[in-house]
Amino acid sequence: MFELLGIPPQALFGQIMLGLINGAFYAMLSLGLAVIFGLLNIINFAHGALYMVGAFTAWFLLQYLGIGYWGALLLAPILVGAFGVVIERTMLRHLYKLDHLYGLLLTFGLALVIQGLFQNKFGSSGQPYAIPSVLQGGQNLGFMFFPNYRAWVVVASLGMCLATWYVIERTKLGSYLRAATENPTLVQAFGINVPRMIMLTYGFGVGLAAFAGVLAAPIYQVSPLMGADLIIVVFAVVVIGGMGSILGSIITGFTLGIVEGLTKVFYPEASNIVIFVIMAIVLLLKPAGLFGRTA
């Protein structure tokens, strides 16, 4: 078997694959955060908790209603998105005219409450969730073994990210969103119901987190703290990509996942901090982020 830079290819490509999977989750979550921040000016700290709720919703649907993975992939984002709409209507709506800090504190508090409720019921241990039967097994690529389910996660999240990007950048609805991000008052004065658009955008962003949660359920265990672990890294990704940049969050998400994977191969000791080191460097050199617009 050949080697690259003294690294066996199984290890190298294995880590790249893991990085790609992590990157898929970073991209989906930071995309939702970017969309929400753009229009609502809210730094949605509850995002990780809602990702977890998405995974648990899939688990509940299976346990209590017998609805399997594919049904959950459709239903969980809708249910969690509807929950997001309730949060927006009852709580976030009152914060738009205040400093970012209030939205951050409220959603951080919400995240703690939601995680606390789930921990109280389920403890900290995870619930298993099986890979759907059609995606079991994998492909032997010669230099590595690629599990089908992980390939599906990469494809599904890439598809979801690109579809979101397309809607925002290339459609009429997207032009409303971009315009309302710049000047919501004027967009409303043209006859567009901006408050409803804001509400649905939060619902969509949160639904995207739930979609990621369902994709994650068969890979990681469904546990109350699965989102808390992830969200800190995702915020670093958002800062690196540039707060509010759609394409930036997608590219940065996938790239940083792979960078993290490669770090595990070449210098494993740094793998847990590499993203934060990159964040610090980006903040020093380009405070608005790699794809961010300076205000």
Binding site: K172, S175, Y176, R178, A179, T181, E182, N183, V187, F190, G191, I192
Partner: peptide, 15 residues
């Protein structure tokens, strides 16, 4: 005028 929209998108924005 919206900076993130093209001239055409600006023109077609108001429903």
């Amino acid at each position: 005028i919206f900076a993130s929209l093209s001239v055409e998108e600006n023109l077609l924005l108001p429903p």
